[in-house]
């Protein structure tokens, strides 16, 4: 009797393990299917990008919507980031007797890493979700089909223009955000200390080198492309009605945020290899 029970328990646990491994393999399969599908979508973007007609008007419109309209949010978060970073660092710098190096340290941190990454994450939250939701709702309300019937290639009109606008605008936003962050930092230094405006900026720029600025600037193009293409991909293949639109917007933000970190990691490795660090 006891032997039968233990055999039954053993069989149940084997079934559970089997089911778990089955679930894992399904998850893994769907992950690779998603990666494959996204790669195919990116390939389609690259192939369509060079073929006329070029949707220049739509590109300018999207640059305005994606770039200009994101500036207040990006600027505000940049300002707070610079201010808070300076205020948090100041006590430690005083403890180590290097308070005078505060502008240089903050400058390098913001320009090299924090500025581009935080700006890109804010951008992913705002633009990734809005592109995902916009294209998703267009898909479920047949607006994309209507566009196709109206003699327009919806992929070129909607996807290529948005991805290009995101790719071009994020570096600009990152530069502006860096500048605003440094201004926040200047105010942070002056809350408890007293630094001349010109002297602060001279200290910041003296500490920066070409190898600090260029890789940070270049990687924002890739971050922008990732946010644009993932947002468009999630929206363009949205399904299951309004519920699907919400899911598209949500997963666009999650996936593009993860992608930003992965690209950042790769960028560090590549700059290391190229001798920029």
């Amino acid at each position: 009797m006891l032997g039968q029970e233990s055999a039954l328990r053993k069989r149940n646990s084997i079934t559970k393990i089997h089911r778990k491994s089955m679930n894992n393999s399904i998850l893994l399969k769907s992950f690779f299917a998603e990666v494959g599908s996204l790669s195919k979508f990116s390939g389609k973007f690259l192939s369509r990008f060079f073929i006329p007609p070029y949707e220049i008007n739509e590109l300018f419109k999207q640059c305005y919507v994606i770039g200009y309209k994101s500036l207040p949010l990006v600027g505000l978060t940049g300002f707070i980031m610079g201010l808070v970073l300076t205020m948090q660092l100041r006590p430690f710098m005083i403890d180590y007797g290097v308070e005078s190096q505060l502008p240089a340290i903050v400058g390098i941190a913001i320009i090299r890493e924090i500025g581009p990454v935080i700006t890109s994450l804010i951008f992913a939250g705002k633009i990734g979700s809005s592109i995902g939701a916009e294209l998703g709702s267009m898909k479920v309300t047949e607006q994309i089909d209507a566009m196709e019937v109206s003699g327009t290639n919806p992929f070129k009109y909607l996807v290529v223009s948005r991805v290009m606008a995101a790719t071009l605008m994020l570096p600009v936003l990152a530069i502006l955000s860096d500048a605003i962050s440094l201004y926040g930092s200047y105010l942070g230094v002056n809350i408890k200390g007293d630094t001349n405006f010109n002297f602060f900026w001279i200290q910041v720029f003296d500490s920066l080198e070409f190898r600090d600025v260029l890789p940070a600037f270049i990687k924002t193009y890739f971050f922008g492309f990732a946010v644009g293409i993932i947002g468009c991909y999630k929206g363009y293949y949205s399904s299951k009605g309004t519920e699907g639109v919400g899911k598209s917007a949500n997963s666009a933000v999650v996936v593009s945020s993860i992608m930003i970190f992965i690209l950042d990691l790769l960028a560090v490795q590549i700059t290391e290899l190229l001798g920029f660090n």
């Binding site: 709702s137 267009m138 047949e142 607006q143 089909d145 209507a146 566009m147 003699g151």
Partner: peptide, 19 residues
Amino acid sequence: DKIRAKVGFLFQSNALYDS
């Protein structure tokens, strides 16, 4: 597209562009 210009399509959901 040339053929589509001669064929009107009224979608069930109207498909008006919201923006």
